[in-house]
Simulated scan of single mutants.
Amino acid sequence: MKYNKLGSSQLSVSEVCLGSMTWGNQNTQHDANQQIDYALAQGINFIDTAEMYAVPPTEKTYGTTETIIGNWIATNQNQRENFILASKIAGNGLAYIRGGSDISGETVTQAIDNSLKRLQTDYIDLYQLHWPNRTSPHFGKHHPNHISFTNVNAEQETQGMLDILQALDKAVKQGKIRHFGLSDDTPWGINQYIKLSEAHNLTRVTAIQNEFSLLHTKDWPYLIENCVHQEVAYLPWSPLAGGVLSGKYLNGARPEGSRWCHAQRNGLFRDTQNTHQAVSRYMQIAEQHNITPAQLALAWCKQVDGVTSTIIGATSMAQLKEDIAAFDIQLYADALKQVADVLKDFPAPF
């Protein structure tokens, strides 16, 4: 297993991060225990969760994933120092989480304390803002004029960021969290937090996790270049684009128990004709190189310059083993050329 420095921190994380968002919905405590044990045995030292999980998010399943991880930690206390634990505060819009309110300094403090209780740990290594208070160009909202940047009050947003940052800095000083990160944010968001931390001598943003895959490369090159030079770790989530890059949803297929059989908070926005045409091409490339389509997608993501650790998720041990094995695969020039040709034909399929 290869390890990379987590942004400007002194932490080293495995190039594979074990995602957990299905635990508590599609997966049980027993499933999660097996996945954690196997991942650690393979050298993975990075686990990502969120207070909002399991997904799709509901009031009934809110906090269950953290609780499941906490149960594992409680029975494996000697292992806590052996892995980097990341979690997130939910953003606005979910009425059952703090009334759907914006993230603020007050809610950050409250959310951290509640997550620590569910996780049954004294500290969280990386605490992230799940999405910013302003609407960001993620979850299919990245096309021109889908959202309006000119209607955002930048001064007001910046003051809100400072309030959040001050609470995060206090939590670091208290030892409740070690570092903070962003999620579903932009270069402007990253740089505003950096400016504020420098101006007020507060904790510095360490990482950002955004959606990134063969079907969704909008962060290359501008956001990733920004991350590299600002020493902010880049953590792709959904490297299989919600599972579609595995090929299992081709031709309208909906395997029983799969994610696309469940209602999605943002809808099946990845389910387009261009998506399936691109996936079909990627499947052909994978077959030519004797790997699975999922392994092609993950091996490609791993080799992108600037990627620190790729967040994977699996609903079965077979999927988990297949996904982890992908990080031992090296894609050579001919395979990368074939992939690049598909990317040129389908630069933004959804």
Score class of each variant (00 low, 15 high):
288 Q>T: 14
135 T>Q: 10
92 N>S: 13
119 L>K: 14
76 N>D: 08
333 A>Q: 08
257 G>A: 00
199 A>G: 13
73 I>F: 08
306 G>N: 08
67 T>F: 07
288 Q>N: 15
274 N>D: 15
328 D>M: 01
248 K>Y: 14
293 P>G: 10
147 I>D: 00
209 Q>L: 06
152 V>N: 04
150 T>G: 10
322 E>W: 12
92 N>V: 02
183 S>F: 01
294 A>R: 03
312 I>A: 01
241 A>H: 06
312 I>R: 03
93 G>M: 01
318 A>Y: 07
321 K>H: 14
87 S>Y: 14
126 L>M: 02
242 G>V: 05
37 D>R: 08
330 Q>K: 11
65 T>V: 02
17 C>H: 02
149 F>D: 14
36 I>R: 08
247 G>C: 08
337 K>Q: 09
119 L>R: 12
219 D>N: 01
289 H>Y: 13
308 T>K: 07
123 Y>V: 12
95 A>P: 14
177 I>Y: 00
307 V>L: 06
1 M>T: 09
349 P>C: 04
141 K>S: 05
345 D>A: 13
54 A>G: 07
139 F>Q: 06
310 T>R: 05
181 G>I: 06
92 N>R: 08
297 A>F: 10
223 L>V: 04
39 A>W: 08
96 Y>K: 09
281 R>L: 13
255 P>V: 11
325 A>V: 01
106 E>Q: 06
51 E>H: 02
234 Y>F: 15
285 I>W: 10
15 E>M: 09
64 T>C: 06
14 S>G: 11
22 T>M: 07
25 N>V: 11
96 Y>R: 07
293 P>W: 05
296 L>E: 09
232 V>N: 02
91 G>M: 09
240 L>G: 09
264 Q>E: 06
81 E>W: 10
41 A>D: 12
299 A>R: 00
